[in-house]
Amino acid sequence: MLRDLSALKENVVSLASFVVIIVIWWVVATFGSIPAFILPSPVAVVSATLERAVDGLLWSDSLASASRVLIGFLIAAATALPLGILMGASPLARAAAEPLIGFIRYMPVSAFLPLTLIWAGIEEAQKWLLIWIGTFFSQTMMFMDAVKRVPVDLLNVGHTLGFSKAKILRRIILPWAMPGIWDALRITLAWSWSWLILAELVAAGMGLGYRMSVDQRYLRTAEIFSAVIFIGLIGLASDQMMKFAGRKLFSWAEGGKL
């Protein structure tokens, strides 16, 4: 009972802070002397959102953006998984690839934008490429880390049971690393959205980022606010879903692994 009550209190407090911010925003936008193209009121943002939802633009843009994120993210994950696992399991592969990947990871992703345009044009492939550059290297390092952390004693159990290398990988290393791999996927999915918006702002014919670049030209600030908040909500929802699924799938890893 006590726990329930404090959880309820927590929710009330977090909700209250949202309400307070929105009220302040509303007051400043309505009674302050700031022009609407700088700070639109929350009411204007909601009505802009509703308008876009009714005429369907919101949904077609969201769909275009979400499918780009999903494809780019999946390509990155599919390429990073084998390499990350290999690097985690083999010191030789690690020695060969870790310094290089570790270095590339510190290059600013946004600086690759011109190159993606030269290499992949302005169509879908360019969006995927930027997402790939923005997530692949970090994913690889995170997957490697998850695999590397398998306790030696568990590997030794496999050895003493006469397991082959492949069997140790399948039966011990991968199950152990899965929660860490899932977490890395969850974190990098959120990044993928940032890189996609960046790519769409520069070159696209549809998508939430593209729409914002058009809105900016016409000073439709309420629409831009609406898009930013909407992207945030999509990110929050997908993150919560991944978290929930992770808890269901890997309940054994809750509160420490051993």
Partner: peptide, 12 residues
Amino acid sequence: GVVFQSYTLMPW
């Protein structure tokens, strides 16, 4: 067969 000092059960 080997029994180790540390706990070596597969937690999953």
